[in-house]
Structures are given as structure tokens and as C-alpha cells.
Amino acid sequence: MTQQGAALQTYNNELVKCIEELNFRRDELNKQIQYEEEEKTRLQHDIRVLTEKLNRVSESLDRRLATRNELEKTVAETEAAYMKILESSQTLLSVLKKETGNLSKATEPRNSKDRLPL
């Protein structure tokens, strides 16, 4: 029986070692799980923060784009109005020069008879 007892003791020792190895692996796996759960929580928080920031930046960008579009429209309208003013000024200057020339011709004596004595 001692042989059976020795065998039983050997089996028992191996079972204890196997159980200790399984407990060690379980503990290591639990540490990895805990680390990954904490990492997941941190990443979810970062995603929330970044999503909020993205929303704020998108809203600001939309407002700035709308403002820029209004400014571009105002600049285009102002430039068009300015060009009309320039064209009108050029037309006015041409008409004025023509009229001045006509007035000068009308006020010049045509021949020596038309001249008044001094």
C-alpha cells in the first residue's frame, strides 16, 4: 500500500501544482482584464471629449464660413457698384469735355467782323 500511497501523494502534489498554475493564470488574466477595462474607460472618455470639441469646432467653422460668404457677397456688390461709379464718372467727364469744347467754339469770334472793338 505504500506504493499506492506514494502514487496518491504524487498525484496530489501534481494536482496542487496544476491548481496553483491555474490560479496564477487566472490572476494574471484578471490583471489584464482590469487594465483593458480601465483603458476602455479612458478611451471612451477621450472620445466623448473629442466629440464635444469636434462639435464646437464644426459649429464655429459653420459660422465663420457663413460670415465669409456674406463678406464675399458684400465685396462683390461693392466692387460692382464702384465699377458703375467709375463708368458713370468717365461718361460724365466725356460729356463735360464735349460741352466745354462746344462752349469754347460758341464763344470764339468767327471772323474779324464778329469781334468787338477794344
Rank of each mutant, 00 (worst) to 15 (best):
R63A: 11
R26V: 09
D114T: 15
D62I: 13
L116G: 11
L29M: 10
H45A: 05
N69K: 11
K105A: 13
L29G: 07
G101D: 08
R56E: 13
L50N: 10
L8G: 10
D62Q: 14
V95H: 01
E77V: 15
N12Q: 10
L61T: 14
V16K: 10
E108Y: 13
R115V: 05
C18K: 04
Q44K: 04
E20R: 03
N23R: 09
E99Y: 00
R64E: 15
L86N: 09
D114H: 08
S58A: 15
S94F: 00
D114L: 12
L116Q: 07
L29R: 11
I19A: 14
L116E: 04
P117F: 13
S94Y: 00
A76P: 01
R110N: 13
L8D: 07
E59A: 14
D27E: 11
C18V: 14
K113S: 09
T10Q: 09
E79A: 06
L50A: 12
Q9I: 12
L22N: 02
V95A: 07
E52F: 06
S88C: 02
S88Y: 00
E52R: 12
S60C: 10
E52I: 09
E72F: 08
E99D: 04
N55L: 05
E36L: 13
L96D: 05
K84Q: 09
S58C: 11
D27P: 01
D46F: 04
K105M: 11
T100P: 00
V95R: 05
H45D: 02
Q44P: 00
K113P: 01
T91C: 00
E79P: 01
L93P: 02
